[in-house]
């Protein structure tokens, strides 16, 4: 039971990360295609400025929770996906410093360097997280000892790449909608219409992913067993449809929330499908890491549950407060203040 509760919490942390940092990563990936001037680039940095750091901690916490609650999964996942994870790490490092460093020099070359870092540092994690999770859904070549018997190229199979594409598109739409929420004028218009255009691509890829999951993974077996769970992929579809509806109405906040619903439901579509596996083995199902054979001791799970149940709600409260505090659109006037990026 404790293992199951922790597995759900594990899903919540990842979903929280994808929903929140997802729009930061989307904004960064959009920058070279959307911004037409230094002013617009600065508007984009400052649209995510007060939020990205707090959002990134969801990833740290998701990693930490994996370590604490499922140490064996943490060990196998991080060592098995060594190259992919270090690439994500390097990308997140250069993305983070780009915010702080970019505006500290006037030179266009300096700014171009950090803009490139910002783009690569946003695009790469979006892509690789998708590739990694699709491969986890599909199963990794783990032997009896839990040792990963593949290379980084094993991950680049069609289903893995489709997963990467799905994440990139989800985050692009999410990021474009965030810009529509947080900016005004011409940039907002372009961001909004881009979200509407990318939506079609996302629809195609999302449907392809749902269908491909039927053939490439064992995710659906839980759904056939308990059809009630089909509500989750259904919610993803509802979120997707609502996103388009609200985009057409130019109701940007609602569209962003609908897109959030899509991201969270997509995450849980995978999480529920995995259960009770955490990383299925593609060599032999018997070698799979499950929540039972990879979890911590009951005492640790209990204590960590108490910590999570007390502190995660507090985190949510003060992060919501922050989003309300900085809810206004970012305008040219805001860029005049010394603290602006």
């Amino acid at each position: 039971m404790l293992e199951t509760i922790w597995f759900i919490l594990w899903g919540v942390l990842w979903a929280g990360y994808f929903m929140l940092d997802g729009f930061d990563l989307g904004v960064g990936t959009l920058m070279p295609f959307l911004a037409r001037s230094d002013l617009e680039r600065r508007l984009m940095y400052n649209a995510t400025g007060p939020f990205w750091d707090g959002n990134e901690v969801w990833l740290i916490t998701a990693g930490g929770a994996t370590f604490a609650a499922f140490p064996r999964t943490y060990a196998v996942m991080f060592s098995g996906l060594y190259t992919a994870l270090l690439l994500i790490l390097f990308a997140l490092i250069v993305r983070g410093v780009a915010f702080e460093f970019r505006g500290k020099e006037e030179s266009p070359t300096w700014r171009r360097v950090w803009d490139t870092c910002f783009f690569v540092g946003s695009f790469l994690p979006a892509l690789l997280l998708g590739v990694a999770f699709a491969n986890i859904f599909k199963g990794l070549p783990l032997d009896a000892k839990g040792i990963y018997r593949g290379t980084v190229f094993t991950l680049l199979n069609p289903y893995g790449i489709l997963g990467g594409l799905l994440f990139v598109l989800l985050f692009l739409v999410h990021g474009a909608l965030w810009l529509a929420v947080k900016t005004g004028g011409e940039l907002q218009e372009r961001a909004g219409s881009l979200a509407g255009g990318l939506w079609y691509l996302l629809l195609v890829v999302a449907v392809a992913f749902l269908v491909a999951s039927r053939f490439a993974t064992g995710l659906y077996s839980n759904y056939y067993e308990t059809p009630l769970f089909f509500v989750i992929p259904l919610l993803a579809v509802v979120g997707l449809v609502l996103t388009k509806l609200f985009v057409v109405q130019k109701s940007w906040w609602r569209a962003w929330f609908a897109s959030s619903l899509t991201i969270v439901s997509c995450t849980f579509f995978g999480v529920v499908g995995l259960y009770p596996n955490m990383i299925p083995s593609s060599i032999d199902p018997g070698y799979s890491l499950t929540i039972f054979n990879s979890s911590s001791s009951p005492l640790t799970l209990k204590i960590m549950l108490a910590v999570a149940l007390v502190f995660v709600p507090i985190v949510v409260v003060y992060q919501v407060w922050t989003y309300r505090l900085f809810r206004d659109r970012v305008t040219e006037k805001d860029l005049g203040y010394e603290e602006a990026y």
Partner: peptide
């Protein structure tokens, strides 16, 4: 990590939940 995650991992996870969130959120505020 596998050998000591039960103890060591929980300290790291507590750090992230209790402190790191607070620090990263309020530095922006």
């Amino acid at each position: 990590s596998e050998y000591v995650g039960d103890i060591f991992g929980s300290l790291l996870a507590t750090e992230a939940t209790v402190a790191f969130f607070l620090e990263s959120t309020f530095i922006a505020v």
